[in-house]
Design a binder for these strands. Structure first.
Lengths: 149, 149
DNA sequence: CTTTCTGCAAAGTGTTTGCAAAAAC
DNA sequence: GTTTTTGCAAACACTTTGCAGAAAG
């Protein structure tokens, strides 16, 4: 399964004299199982399903650790709540988000990347990185426009 | 100067039986004068320069009002703090941000829009809107790479 | 055994809300 | 005169931190 990520975390911890604990593994596993962009609260819930004794502070500490270790990355937050996405071995990608059901599709599009480079060049900027989120309604939701809330 | 925006706000307020006050005008003026993406705190400071008696709650209330009225729009927040940008008569645009000096260039690129549409179509999504931020180093900053911090 | 980690509760941010006085209509 | 608005302070939500006991190395 997610052995690669666990190994990456262990390596990061070892390098810094930190410890690989069962709790951290639980949080990591929970994080890896979650799709979409995850809030700390959702992650706490998920982790507690595996181990109800986990405290929220630990989840916050661990997700920050995962971010430092390069396994998680902050995603754009619409409201005031931070969201995290997977970052390990994830090539740069952009997001297509269903505003109705929250589904997230990750994609990479060469034409967009090329057009972005052109924008950088036209403005004389050196590219550093970008973030893009396309919002829309996914086929399932736009098809099922019957019960609509 | 910014009479158009003020008129838009007044119209919005009138429609809802709300009142156009001096305080709201002060906050609006402050907001319109600010470039980049503004936090509530920055806006509070700016508004207090014009009227030191303004309270922070009022600024929060007013910026939310501006957002409802379509004059302001939430921008992507990196940290946990909300940022707002101008939205009135601002055609949809994207941002090119200098990570060194904070300069923001707003642009619109037909090739990118077209490529985005293609992504929507390829995934069967109905487009709703998107947000894109290109990060880079502006010509001035990359040219002046001498004292670099 | 030493160091780090954990859960709890308390403290910190950024934002919202309740209230009486003040301003707009 | 009625209604909305305002500034203050208290409340709130999300995140971080301090501490004593527990676990890892």
């Amino acid at each position: 399964m997610a052995g690669e990520e666990r190994a990456a975390l262990e390596g990061y911890l070892r390098d810094r004299g930190l410890k690989m604990t069962e709790t951290r593994e639980t949080v990591l596993e929970a994080f890896l199982k979650m799709e979409r962009h995850v809030t700390a609260e959702e992650l706490l819930e998920a982790a507690r399903r595996a181990d109800p004794s986990i405290g929220q502070a630990t989840v916050f500490r661990t997700i920050n650790l995962l971010a430092e270790a390069g396994l998680a990355r902050e995603a754009c937050s619409d409201d005031g709540t931070r969201r995290f996405e997977h970052a390990y071995r994830h090539e740069h990608h952009d997001h297509l988000l269903c505003v109705s059901c929250g589904k997230v599709v990750e994609f990479r599009d060469a034409a967009i990347e090329r057009a972005q480079d052109a924008v950088y060049r036209a403005n004389g900027f050196e590219p550093v990185g970008h973030r893009m989120e396309l919002k829309g309604v996914c086929p399932r939701c736009s098809g099922a426009k019957k019960g609509g809330s």
